[in-house]
Deep mutational scan, measured.
Amino acid sequence: MLYRITVRNADGEKLEIVVEMSEDEVRALAEELRKAGYEVRVEPIPEGEEP
C-alpha cells in the first residue's frame, strides 16, 4: 500500500515522502523516526488516488 510520510525536525523543516510498504513496515519506520526525535505523520493513500 502507498503511504505519505511527513517528517519534521526540531527546527520545523519538513520532508514529505511517498512509500510503498506494508502497514507493519511503515509503523516500524515511524517509530524509529520518533525515537530519533522527529515528529512523524503517516497517512495511507487510498487506491486510485494520486500520491
Rank of each mutant, 00 (worst) to 15 (best):
M1K: 05
L2Y: 11
L2V: 07
L2C: 15
L2T: 12
Y3K: 01
Y3H: 04
Y3I: 03
Y3V: 03
R4G: 01
I5S: 00
I5G: 00
I5H: 00
T6C: 01
V7G: 15
R8Q: 12
R8E: 08
N9P: 07
N9M: 07
N9E: 02
A10P: 14
A10V: 04
D11T: 14
G12M: 07
G12Y: 07
G12N: 05
E13S: 15
K14W: 07
L15W: 11
L15D: 15
L15I: 04
L15R: 15
E16Q: 06
E16P: 08
E16I: 08
I17W: 12
I17C: 02
I17A: 03
V18C: 05
V18Y: 04
V18A: 04
V18S: 12
V18D: 03
V19D: 01
V19P: 00
V19E: 02
M21E: 01
M21Q: 02
E23W: 10
E23Q: 07
E23M: 09
D24V: 10
D24P: 14
D24I: 07
D24H: 14
D24N: 10
E25Q: 08
E25I: 03
E25S: 06
E25Y: 05
V26G: 01
V26A: 14
A28Y: 12
A28P: 02
L29F: 15
L29C: 04
L29G: 01
A30M: 09
A30L: 13
A30G: 04
E31F: 06
E31P: 00
E32S: 15
E32I: 11
E32F: 07
E32Q: 12
L33D: 00
L33Y: 15
R34T: 11
K35G: 04
K35F: 05
K35E: 02
K35I: 11
A36D: 07
A36R: 15
A36I: 08
A36F: 07
A36C: 08
G37W: 15
G37T: 01
G37C: 01
Y38T: 02
E39L: 05
V40K: 00
V40W: 01
V40H: 00
R41K: 09
R41L: 10
R41Y: 07
R41C: 02
R41S: 13
V42R: 01
V42S: 02
E43M: 05
I45E: 10
P46M: 12
P46N: 06
P46T: 14
P46C: 02
P46S: 13
E47K: 10
E47I: 12
G48M: 15
E49Q: 09
E49F: 10
E49S: 11
E50R: 12
E50L: 12
E50H: 10
E50V: 08
P51C: 15
